[in-house]
Simulated scan of single mutants.
Amino acid sequence: MFKYLSRREKIVPNDIDEGFFFSTRQGTALLPRNVLRKIVLIGKKAGIEGKRLSPHTFRHTFAKQYLMAGGDLFSLQQIMGHATLISTRKYISLLTEDIQKKHRQFSPLDNL
């Protein structure tokens, strides 16, 4: 975060005073639709088709990867900004699907 702040300060020195954290090169607030537009553009350039590309997808993927790498649910709750574990627990069901898939792929009983 501090690297971002120092870099951003060189590009747009006064935007912190305007009350927003992320800004465009012109010094205006970075709006959600601008982020979505950029993600879709990068996805097209990368040749990604048939997949939903959105900030929410990135957030969702981060949470799933965080848990798969060994992160705990309570830390994830704080990182994601969820008030309760109820919202955070939905990522556990995603892991369950991955675990079942891996089990089918690598189970010694299924590979006899």
Rank of each mutant, 00 (worst) to 15 (best):
H103F: 15
D72Q: 00
L53I: 12
F74S: 09
G70P: 05
F62H: 11
Q77N: 04
Y91G: 11
K64C: 13
L95K: 03
I99H: 04
G50Q: 06
S93F: 03
T57R: 02
M68D: 11
Q65T: 07
F74W: 09
T61C: 02
M68L: 14
L67G: 06
T84L: 05
Q78N: 07
R59N: 08
D72G: 01
I92Y: 00
H103V: 04
L76R: 07
G71R: 09
A83Q: 13
Q105R: 13
K102A: 15
K101T: 15
F62L: 07
I86R: 13
K101P: 03
Q105M: 12
R59T: 04
A63S: 05
R104K: 14
L94Q: 13
L85I: 10
A69N: 13
Q77W: 02
H56A: 09
D72E: 00
A63P: 00
A69F: 05
L95Q: 03
F58Q: 04
R104V: 02
T88D: 03
T84E: 06
Q78L: 06
A83R: 14
R59G: 08
Q100C: 13
Q78T: 08
G71C: 09
L73R: 06
I99V: 13
K90R: 15
R59E: 03
K90D: 08
G71A: 05
T57Q: 02
Q105H: 12
